[in-house]
Nucleic acid binder design. Sequence first.
DNA 1: AGTACATATGCAACCAGTTGCACAGCAACC
DNA 2: GGTTGCTGTGCAACTGGTTGCATATGTACT
Lengths: 181, 181
Amino acid sequence: MALEHAILVSLAERSGTGYELARRFDASIGNFWKASHQQIYKVLGRMEADGLVTSEVVAQDGRPDKKVYAITDAGRAELARFTTEPSAPEPLRSSFAVKLRALEHGDRDAILADVHRMRAHHTEKLAYYETSAERFYPDPDALDPADVGPYLVLRGGIIGEQTALSWCDEILERLEGRAPR
Amino acid sequence: MALEHAILVSLAERSGTGYELARRFDASIGNFWKASHQQIYKVLGRMEADGLVTSEVVAQDGRPDKKVYAITDAGRAELARFTTEPSAPEPLRSSFAVKLRALEHGDRDAILADVHRMRAHHTEKLAYYETSAERFYPDPDALDPADVGPYLVLRGGIIGEQTALSWCDEILERLEGRAPR
DNA sequence: AGTACATATGCAACCAGTTGCACAGCAACC
DNA sequence: GGTTGCTGTGCAACTGGTTGCATATGTACT
């Protein structure tokens, strides 16, 4: 149930509506834990029933009312408890790896096209992460203590994307018999 | 529904029982797509109803009967079709990243212990992959064409584990203020 | 006038996957 | 004699997550 904890982290940074959380998930935490707005609303409802968050309805003109959620003390305690839990080894699921294993049973050209598509995707993501790093943490040796966690997570994203890119290049080199690009 | 395709790949390599598939998943494909035996039996049942696989009951003495599954022509066609499908960008889910982001809201020592645990886990996995690589592909420049896909998948596993290790080291260096080990 | 997009919340139905259990027999160890 | 472990198949209940839809309003573009 890490979605619950991802929401708690996000609300600990600052309060917000379900809609806002969904967008934050698109941008930052969502790089490491995806969630749709439907699911966020559902989980927020359960979390409120469990006392981990509270909500306050705010009227707006020209726009629908919104429900601003805030973390409670119980929520903060649950978040702290969560950090003491050992992480289960992440079950890595890659349908692309399955496809690559099927190379001899499938369409080689289509798989190559897929690698090129993935390569472009990872290039874009890497650029996005690197821009974020420069913008938010221009001097990594002088980080605000509150930024250390988020910074290290971003670093994980960067080296992960670099590795994904290297893998694409290695595949292309071998399957196209030349250096990529 | 990539589990279906992972099973088809495995059965295309050779026929086997649900039980055997579950073990193969533990060892090879399972490094990139986990599945429990319960789920494999469930999916095999559906796949047989869909005509992608056939089964034959084999009696054994001293052991329970077993059902040996084999891929059909329809199964092979579906596998080929699958390879022409563009892969969706894998939604990466890391509860550890969520935990790391919660560094300032939780228990720093427990998180550090968790990093050490993960580091040990990735070290072990990397060693396992490297052993497999040496054993099955001692000469990567002279691969059997049928081995190219599986080899590249294994390479992905190796560089993924190396990256995970680097990330652990970077985290430890920053949080413990020294080089790891 | 019609379309699309952003804000904002939420239900219902479905699908994938996990957890826990049941049954069955043989082999090995203590 | 009892426990553990391997082979082998499978059901039932549950949880987490996806897909599709519904509703409401304002702005901007065509």
